[in-house]
């Protein structure tokens, strides 16, 4: 268990102002925040590259705040990857093993295994300058994982990849986490957090604004900043499938939504912006393909209007203006219809 307590640090224009969090074994802990929030600084302090001015880092109760970089059980994959340009892919991955004077045959075996796991065996003989961004990413990951770090620290690992590569790496990271590896992942992209995290800490200007299990943070943002930054209020685990050229997402409660997406079939999340949800009093014929009847369970003000929570078997949040609220006289307990276009539903594959 990793306990970070009240870290303070001002460094190169960034400032951490009392950062505290706890990471349990097996967590996929995502630190989510806009650029400039100080997320990278948190990772660098955990890895020991930078020492905090105040605060403590406890590993199973032992204070490791001032430990040397090379003796911490933290495997950091830098945003710029830092793959050694003068070594082959094989030597890059073998680097941490050779340092520990591992026997040569074991080095070879573990390098092969790790490369196999990350699907880069065919690259072992290559030099880094001849690799693509996605390949370098996997090399950096393999090199870090091969030494079995207790904590895998990832700094914006998906930021520089294009969409098709993102999906592959996302499922790889999920798989690595599910095999028991504790991961601390820093990102500005709430979709990443949504899809990967078991726990989320939302960070802003050097402070943690909200922290907790991912679905709690996303469904119940505790501040306006969190609400705006976490963006989408409606997201649900779902399974994508095709039937007669059409795509459907089946939610966990068995309800089915029409969606339009390029993602492959399988498990993932559906995302729906509150602004894209229509509320009507009757089942009106529209071009939208998703229609559900439900009951309003909450009406709450929101900076640019109102958020209406509607229970249609699951809770959907709709964002509407004051005018609409008044003209439809919406209030808790009222039966309404909601509708949204299949094209408004985003599906993100895990």
């Amino acid at each position: 268990m990793l306990d970070v307590k009240n870290i303070h640090k001002a460094y190169a224009g960034f400032k951490l102002d009392g950062i505290s969090f706890r990471v349990e074994n097996g967590d996929y802990f995502v630190i989510l925040g806009p650029s400039g929030a100080g997320k990278t600084l948190v990772l660098e302090i955990l890895a020991g590259l930078i020492l905090p001015e105040d605060g403590q880092i406890l590993l199973d109760g032992h204070d490791i705040t001032d430990d040397r970089i090379q003796s911490r059980p933290m495997g950091l994959v830098f945003q710029d990857l830092a793959v050694f340009p003068h070594m082959s892919v094989r030597d890059n991955i073998a680097f941490p093993l050779k340092i520990k004077r591992t026997e040569r045959r074991e080095v070879e075996q573990r390098v092969e295994e790790q490369a196999e796991l990350l699907e880069i065996r065919h690259l072992l003989g290559r030099r880094p300058h001849s690799l693509s961004g996605g390949e370098l990413q996997r090399v950096a990951l393999a090199r870090t994982l091969v030494r079995n770090p207790r904590y895998l620290l990832l700094d914006e690992p998906l930021a520089s990849l294009d969409i098709s590569l993102k999906q592959g790496l996302r499922s790889l990271l999920k798989k690595i986490n599910q095999s028991g590896q504790t991961i601390i992942h820093v990102t500005h992209d709430y979709e990443e957090a949504l899809v990967l995290a078991t726990k989320v800490a939302v960070m802003h200007s050097g402070r943690i604004m909200q922290m907790g299990p991912a679905d709690k943070v996303f469904h119940h943002p505790g501040s306006e900043f969190t609400a705006r930054f976490t963006g989408i209020r409606n997201y649900f685990p779902a399974r994508l499938y095709r039937e007669q050229e059409r795509q459907y997402a089946e939610l966990e409660n068995g309800m089915v939504l029409r969606v339009i997406t390029d993602e492959p079939e399988g498990q993932g999340f559906v995302l729906l912006r509150g602004e894209d949800v229509f509320i009507s009093l009757d089942n009106l014929p529209t071009s939208a393909t998703n229609h559900f009847k439900g009951t309003i369970i909450d009406v709450s003000p929101y900076p640019s209007g109102f958020e209406i929570m509607v229970d249609i078997g699951f809770q959907v949040c709709a964002r509407i203006t004051r005018e609409s609220l008044q003209s439809l006289s919406l209030r808790s307990g009222r039966k309404v219809w909601i509708s949204f276009k299949a094209a408004s539903v985003r599906f993100v594959r895990v």
Partner: peptide, 27 residues
């Protein structure tokens, strides 16, 4: 030589001596 590469080597468990001889000096 990017400081990043030296930091990466330290993070991978290398001592500063090792980093100097395997990363900084060769580069």
């Amino acid at each position: 030589v990017p400081v990043r590469l030296e930091q990466a080597a330290l993070n991978l468990g290398a001592s500063p001596f090792r980093v100097f001889f395997t990363i900084s000096l060769p580069l």
